[in-house]
Write a protein that binds this DNA or RNA. Structure first.
Lengths: 338, 338
DNA sequence: TGTCCGCGAGTTAGCGCTAACTTGACGAAA
DNA sequence: TTTCGTCAAGTTAGCGCTAACTCGCGGACA
């Protein structure tokens, strides 16, 4: 037994070419366009690929062609099912032709910058960012890299390149206006921490804008920040119930805060919505099936992911994307808690 | 203005080296080990990197060194928060030094095989699989590639390479035994579809094993499969309530089935656990906070991800991993529904 | 009959790094 | 002084592909 046989290395394109009796270039072409050779040649090459178990080396291919087909995606956290919806949308559109590299920023701009740097080192061909605020360096690096970029977390007016999202501000304003229209006059607002989180910030601005437009006072005591999770919602509810004069509605912006608040309200036997209306964001089958069913804002997160990916593919295909800013909108789902 | 200046391409290592007055090799070494040169040289190189905005090209580096530091990870679906827990664990341990490439198999073995093929094309240095059943081709490809692999979904006895998980069978058996010990005699079992899903299959086997050990009959009418989601849980509950003679307990294995069942039972004003005990799997703060709080199996999914990643890193570091099979265990969380 | 075009397939020259070897200077040991 | 080890840094030769150009052949057309 020869040494070559015992120490088997991965087959290279040249091995396949030799076995099929063609040049390496022909194999390379066939892998990208099977119709560009005669059927007989194609068949010989396919047989050789099968026989050797050849798997094309994309690393070498990428170096030679100076581009990869890897798409990089950064979310604040992987744990949050909201972001995961968008990731699934991106993944579904990209398929296996464009591998997806995923990193989490840990909700920090520095974390995002580190992830961008790592991605650029891998020479990703495009990036998807959830955040719409970034460090200066992040912006510069992405601009210099000259690759397409879609932001998905908020319909920012200053995208790095493209954006597919909804307006957090408009959505929060619409929901607040909805409460006002239904006669509520003292409305509490709880959000996730706003540092490095433009979405939470925008929503608070939307809440305040709705109050101002209705000529209602903006009481700082009615705006709080809580941690994500059911516990955060419960905490917010507890706080708002402690206020004098009493609030008659609360808007819990983000994550499952509203569900947490409703569960806590039930535990305390608070009448919903009679004594207190509760509305939330990020509709889910949980918010729908809990009793009373929660009135929420619904965001098209999966579609945002799909749209973001298709915008990237269009640009990678050399075609222009117009408009570069796509508003996928939002929806108020009226149920029983308001 | 020269053409070179107007058409700026990404700086290469040679540019940095020229600016710092050293050879490319020295720059290459510094990037991996800053202490291997004199402090003055290091400083000059760092300044040159800063001035040029150089980002090392990992594609070229990988080709030259014949290895990447990309870890590939495949889950059945990204939408499911259970899998995402594990992903976060993996991601936290890998950090930015090992970019994470993620694909979903769409719950199919063929999808997994396609993803594995794509990953091997990218020459990933290691893979994490959630599934523990695979196509023959998948197994062959991974073995030929000779890269470390950790499976995380079930403590399989025939891992491709390594496994970090818990025993789905033992967990389901323990939970069923728990119900039997509490006096239940007619126990329904609902799971997710078992095709291509070894976890669901194992759990059903565990349920049946517990019944057999207690010398209780295994009635096929008491075992059903439902779709994931709260609706699936509601559907299961509806089915079990329709049976004669009546069941006195149901075990809903997987996803949020138990929560869905509890919500549906409340809607129908079924007394829990008096008339019907309900237990589930995959503990979450939702199962804890819903009323009545759900008795569940808790699986250490995040820790499984961390452990899987550290096993990979150990092997990539050239050190052996022993044992190659790690049981992270499970726990029955006793609450109010049983 | 000659010209030219289109098409299948080959040849050449890198892509931007790193492994492995080499060099040269300096100081310690013989 | 000679020898040799050590350490910083350089030189050489690819890694396994693909871009871009080249070649040769057969058929359409004037």
């Amino acid at each position: 037994m020869s040494k070559n046989a015992s120490v088997r290395r991965a087959p290279r394109m040249a091995d396949v070419a030799a076995m099929a009796g063609v040049s390496g270039m022909t194999v390379s072409r066939v892998l990208r366009d099977p119709t560009c050779v005669t059927p007989e040649t194609l068949q010989r090459i396919e047989q050789a690929i099968e026989a050797t178990g050849y798997v094309a080396n994309r690393v070498a291919g990428s170096l030679a062609s100076r581009r990869t087909n890897i798409v990089g995606l950064i979310v604040p956290s992987l744990r949050n099912s909201l972001f995961v919806e968008t990731i699934q949308g991106v993944s579904d559109v990209l398929g296996t032709s464009h591998p997806l590299m995923i990193a989490d920023s840990g909700y920090s701009l520095a974390g995002e910058e580190a992830a961008i740097r790592a991605f650029l080192g891998q020479r990703v061909c495009a990036v998807v960012l959830h955040n719409t605020t970034h460090t200066d360096r992040s912006r510069v690096m992405l601009r210099e890299a000259g690759i397409p970029c879609v932001e998905t977390g908020n319909l920012t007016r200053q995208p790095i390149d493209m954006v597919a999202s909804f307006s957090n501000r408009k959505a929060a304003r619409a929901m607040t206006a909805y409460l006002i229209a239904r006669g509520h006059r003292r409305i509490g607002f709880a959000s996730l921490p706003t540092d490095d989180n433009d979405r939470a910030e925008e929503r608070r601005a939307g809440y305040q804008a709705a109050l101002s437009r209705a000529r209602m006072p903006v009481d700082p005591a009615l705006t709080i920040e809580v941690a994500a999770g059911l516990a955060g919602g419960a905490e917010a509810l507890t706080y708002f119930l402690s206020l004098t004069p009493a609030v008659d509605a609360v808007f819990l912006s983000g994550d499952v805060l509203a569900t947490g608040a409703v569960l806590e309200a039930k535990r305390r036997r608070i009448a919903i919505p009679k004594r207190l209306a509760i509305v939330g964001t990020d509709d889910s089958d949980l918010q729908e099936r809990i009793s009373p069913a929660v009135t929420t804002l619904r965001f098209p997160r999966y579609d945002i992911g799909r749209r973001a990916a298709s915008m990237l593919l269009t640009r990678l295909d050399g075609r222009p994307v117009d408009p570069a800013s796509v508003d996928l909108g939002f929806e108020i789902v009226e149920r029983a808690t308001a």
